[in-house]
Every structure is written in C-alpha cells, then in structure tokens.
Design a protein around this nucleic acid. Structure first.
Lengths: 201, 201
DNA sequence: CAATATACGGAACGATCGTTCCGCTTGTCA
DNA sequence: TGACAAGCGGAACGATCGTTCCGTATATTG
C-alpha cells in the first residue's frame, strides 16, 4: 500500500500533491538533520518543508522512521563507495582515500555521525545493520591494506570505524570546523600506518 | 553567604542536617552524572540522595550549577595531573602517560566527556575556562615532547584534546567498552609520534 | 461541474524535565 | 522543654517535543 520496496525509488501511486509533499519532506529533513543532528524538532522539518505536522506524520509514522530514511540513504552511499574500492590495484590508496571520503561525508552530515556514534545502543536496528555492513566493507579494505603491509595488522575494522567517527566528531566540536577535520583524520591515518623503521632495512 | 571560596573545602555554617544533605547531594550527583552523563534528570539525583527536589534546589540553584560543581572538580584533577608532569625528565613519557590517564579518567566519568566535548558551545563559562586551562597545560606537555622530537610538530593542543575526548567517546559507544578505549587511544598516540624514517613508505 | 476519496493543517494531548512555591518538620538555643 | 528560624518535601507549573485527531480543502474522475 505504501512505499514498500526497499530496493530503490518507485513510481508511487496517489495524489500528485502527496507525492510532491513526500519529496519536500525528505529534502527538508535531509537539510535539517544534517545541520542540527538527530535531535532537531520535527516541527522544524515540517516548517521547512512548508507542510503541517499532520502531513509529515501521514508520510512518516514516526520521527525515528523519518530519521532512519534519511540516514539509511546516506549510509548506503558510504557502503557503496567502500565496496567499489574493494579489489583496487593499490590497496593502500584505496583505504586512505576512502577514509578521507568517509570523513568528509560524515563531517558534512551530522546526522550520519549521530547515527554511527550511537549505533550500538538505540538507533533502530535497520541502521545498526547497515552500519555493520559498512564496517564489514571497511574491513575488507583494511585487510587488503594490511596484507600489502601498509597498515598495522593489529587494527580492527570496528576500531577504525570508531576512530574515524571520533576524528570527525572532534573536528566538528572545535571551532575550526571542517578545515581541521582533514588534519585530524590525517593523524589517525598516521596512527594505523606501518612505519618502516631504519633498522628494518 | 554561601560556599563562596573556590579554593577548597570550608567548614560551612548552618544546621547539621543541611551540611549532611549538601554532601549527600554532591555524592549522588557525582555518581549519577558519571553513569548517565549530563542529561540525567535532576529528580534522579534527588532520589539517589534521599532528598526532595526542593532541598536539592536550595543547595544548588540550578541544574547547571550542580553539574558544574561536579565537573569542575573533576577537570581540576585533570589539570593538576597535567601540571605535575610539566618539566619531567622524560617529556615523551610525561605526555603519553598523561594521555593514558586522561583517557581512563574520561572513560570512567561520562560527565567530564560531555563537558569537554561541548566546551566550545554552551556549557557555562567556568567550565570552558577550566577546559582551556587543561588544554594549555596539555599544550606544555605537548611542546616539550615536540622539542624532544618525540611528537610531530604540526599537532596542536586543541586538536589533541578534541581527538582524545572523541576517541574515548567513540570507544565507549561501541559495545566493547573500556577495553578498547585503551587501544584506540594507543592508535591516536601512534599517530602523533614522530617516526624516524629516512623516507617514509 | 458535481461527487467523493484522499490528503492537508494545525490545535490539542500527554510525557518529560527543569524549576518554583508553600505548608510542614526539625535542629538549635535559651 | 518550648519557641522559632532554618530547612525540608513534593505537588504543581511551564516549556519543549513527539504524536494524534478531526474539520477542512482539493485533486481526481465521470
């Protein structure tokens, strides 16, 4: 009766204005949650969408459902991007490039951060599952880099993911903002690199 | 008229039960805020202290005041500990030991984390000031280590502090918990170390 | 254009939480 | 021990926020 299919966008039945509002709400939510994080009031989303709260609730039965819809899409991007790098010729570049992309994306969208940061605790299971998939894909990139002796062998994907979200969070908290995110991520990257010491050769 | 002196504990005038309640409230708040973070309901603190909310509010005019009292004490410890390490014979050990201590302390007390994480934004100015002092002391430790060529020169105290608190926070969010906090902090440490290599990679 | 299902808007509700108020209890002191 | 100030408890208030409800508006269809 409703959206139903998880796979992708589907020509939706219903009144034309309903479809338009559905889209508007998603766009508004995307913007508001990015800027303000998961705890932004739902009324703010409705206002921004030029829609009453009632309408919003007809399209998304719960705040969490709306939030989930936005975040799932974002995380999906993160996931696809990771998978597309698996098996690259240069495993080291594949990993570090991805980490940079991950950081940039997360820094721009506070909602993703919120979702990932608290993935273990309460966010609805569908998000947690997707996050787990991202961790798995990241794990593959990591393993490749480790086998190429570019990254320390004793780092796990979970740890790396936690580190990355920490880095971005740290960057966002300070007033410097996006500029320093890059630097902080660089520190983390340096931390997991394997450093070929002089005495080793 | 009230507590007044910032320096230390003072024999307080007033009824005996009032003094007892004051102490009880502080103890309860310490425990509750550590466990639940800054957003724990005030009623929970009152209940734990075996006291009515009214009583709590007579001793601390505002939730923020209570929170501040607890957190300031904790941050003060962090600050003293940092200062005591300034000028140590081994600057490298001084810094890294302190970071480990900082992480352990912050992991055990969610309240400190909450306060530091959002120090730039809204927490009352007295906390922000103290945090700034800690950053400054940490900056001295950092500078020493950098002059000893043990740590990269392009890392700032603010960055390091943000990264540390975020790392601990990220580590706590995951289900692994405190065990992995140590490892995550270790990776960060590795990231700021200077690795003596003729030509990296 | 009329009829009708569909969708809309926003007032109102209930839960949570910080804070205030005031009638009652209790420590203190003579 | 009695009187009184100091202190206490917790009901109640107001603000915020998620969610519900229902009278109204409008897209659609024939």
């Amino acid at each position: 009766m409703n959206i139903g299919a998880l796979g992708g966008e589907e020509t939706r039945a219903g009144r034309a204005d309903a479809q338009r509002n559905h889209r508007r709400i998603l766009e508004a939510a995307e913007e508001v949650f990015s800027r303000e994080g998961a705890s932004a009031p739902i009324d703010l989303v409705a206002e921004r969408a030029g829609v009453g709260v009632g309408t919003l609730y007809r399209h998304f039965p719960t705040k969490e459902a709306l939030f989930e819809a936005i975040v799932l899409a974002r995380i999906e991007e993160l996931l696809q991007s990771a998978r597309s790098r698996v098996g690259a010729e240069d495993p080291e570049a594949a990993l570090f490039d991805y980490l940079a992309y991950f950081a940039a994306e997360a820094a721009a969208k506070r909602d993703v951060l919120d979702a990932i940061a608290s993935s273990g605790i309460d966010i609805k299971s569908r998000c947690a599952v997707k996050v787990e998939e991202v961790a798995q894909a990241l794990g593959q990139l990591l393993e490749q880099a480790q086998q190429a002796r570019a990254v320390r062998g004793d780092v796990s994907a979970q740890e790396l993911m936690a580190l990355m979200s920490a880095a971005v969070q740290a960057a966002c908290a300070g007033e410097a903002g996006a500029a320093s995110a890059e630097r902080i991520v660089a520190i983390v990257c340096e931390g997991i690199r394997v450093h070929h010491t002089p005495e080793a050769r």
